[in-house]
Write a protein that binds this DNA or RNA. Structure first.
Lengths: 199, 199, 199, 199
DNA sequence: ACCCGCGGGACGGCCCGTTATT
DNA sequence: AATAACGGGCCGTCCCGCGGGT
């Protein structure tokens, strides 16, 4: 059966992965011990090596991909549920702000911490982080194009939107305050204004 | 003499601190071992706990403060050297982009990595990161006010500018590409436009 | 059919055993992981405990027996192919020297390493090693008796011959040089001289 | 004070080393865990990495050197205490046999096991084992020359003597019997006979 | 009935951040 | 203020059963 297979898969590998993604998001990559992941997932130590023969790095890669894909889907859904570009972007940032607040400022971006930690240490993890960010950018761009943003603008705006979101998340988490998130809304709005003739 | 004192101080404590700040910037807090710092500074092992009785956390705090203050000064100087607000903000981001490129995308923000890593682990380090970011915001705000930006706008714009810079640095480092930095310039320009009536 | 049975057996159990014997010879018992054996034999993991319910120790025992019997047969063949006692012993040591050289000094005695490693750890493996060595001694003794060596001398000489061979193999492997093997030939020759009146 | 310093040194590093040499002799290199060594020496875990920064391999090297040098000295002393060549060689083998018996066949050659185990795994350990064996050969040769053995013969005889000793030790340990040691005496005696004209 | 993918505890060695001694 | 030593804990992986497939 499909369901039992999925359930089975999620009991062993998927559960570990979900726990890993969660912990990497909160504590970062180096700040999370494999022990923590196993304890959170309720998995024994040895089975980990079976599913992830390359060890922690492979878990990190898979966790980044998992979180990246989940977020990409969420972005696409936000676009589909919004009736204009501004609503779309505001939905994104407000969703993040709400999640941040709900977790007591513990759950920030699931990629950023690991990306920064491993930018120099591991090419594989940097690559996984890059893929995740790029997927997000792509989804934001697609969402914008949905609302008739000119394609030549959408890509550039998407990058700025993502930068702003990431920066605001970083500050909000560090300040333990939603103010950076709220102020960031202004930027999102400004970015959607028709670009003036550049002289 | 002031100079000899500084030199002397920089031989023992300051040198260690400079090395720590550098390594934390590139490798993050948990990714940097005390051994690495000692090796980079050429300091002997035992003397570390003479200068920093509270251990690694204290070194981290001091390193964050060092890097934070240095950057705050650089922001103030950028403001002083610019003839209008746009030039000021562009100088900031272009300076960062140049540094990033010059170090092969190794030197990103000296605070962000440690801030994210320790947001949950250490209240002291989160506090030090917060202080650094806030000093930067303050300096950016002051720079903007220098160019007649309305005080009630300057604070908000400063937060957005810092968010955008941080986010762009994160993406640029992860992508190993300056494109996010270049695209971020648009945001900085947009933020300086006179705010329209919000209807 | 005998052949298909052998082939079948050698595909599953015998293949694993052959790989084990090979690896134990080169890397020793503790230096060889079950994983290495499985990888070399191309066998799956779980089937191992079907053939060897007692685990690694049982594999070690079987591998020692396999290598011991093969070598015993080789000794008997060497005796049969030689026309006098000296030729017999020289054939033995030169065969070993050639094999050592052909494998880049990797293939030494297939028993010695495991025998020494497990002399204290496992009574079963020490027993298997003892059986192998004793079979060799017996075959050497028989070979000598074939050439009219007095039975009361043959047993003693056989022990000395085996000791000399083993010691020379050890030194040759450690030195990565055939010189100990060549020098050992002298001992083999001396042992065959008629024993003088010990007066 | 020199003595207290020596005692101090032997309490930390030397004690660990002595325990390591002992355990490697009995259980082999891979069969001995660092934990075993530390437990036997009563040393704490972390100090090991201080004294031996390169880890187990470095301990192995040092232990092989320690045992090798001690044995080389013992050989020289045996030569000095003997009144002819035969007495010298018999003293060697009988001393080893006595030690073997006294330890219940647990203490064999302190080098051989590790030498065979690591012949393929570690170049450093193979080198250390080689050095030890060569020192022994040299001491045996010197001892023989003391008793007017022709220099061109002494080296060759020394190699054969060492081979015979090592092989006999291997068999004796595996058989748990002194017989191979006793029979080896014959070889030592034969080796000292004047070499005949080789025609 | 034979086989094997998957999962499970247990150490193995390494190294980290730290403290007494001097 | 620097050498010497210290436990703790991390990651890897080792050797081993339990259930489903064929």
């Amino acid at each position: 059966m499909i369901f039992s297979l999925m359930a089975k898969d999620l009991d062993s590998k998927g559960k570990t992965l979900a726990a890993a993604a969660d912990l990497f998001r909160r504590q970062g990559y180096f700040g999370t011990a494999l022990q923590d992941i196993l304890a959170a997932a309720g998995s024994p130590r040895g089975s980990l090596y079976f599913h992830f023969p390359d060890g922690k790095e492979q878990i990190g890669e898979a966790a980044l991909k998992l979180a990246g894909d989940a977020n990409a889907r969420a972005i696409a859904q936000a676009a589909a549920a919004s009736k204009n570009a501004e609503a779309f972007l505001l939905r994104l940032i407000r969703g993040m702000a709400a999640h941040l607040e709900n977790t007591g400022f513990r759950d920030g971006c699931p990629i950023a911490t690991t990306a920064l930690e491993t930018a120099v240490h591991s090419e594989a993890l940097r690559g996984a982080a890059r893929d995740a960010f790029q997927k997000w950018e792509t989804e934001i761009r697609r969402g914008l194009e949905r609302f008739a943003i000119a394609p030549e603008d959408a890509a550039s705006i998407a990058t700025c939107v993502l930068s702003q979101l990431e920066g605001a998340l970083l500050l909000a988490r560090t300040y333990r305050s939603l103010e950076p998130m709220q102020r960031a809304e202004r930027v999102l709005t400004l970015l959607l204004r028709p670009r003036e003739s550049k002289a």
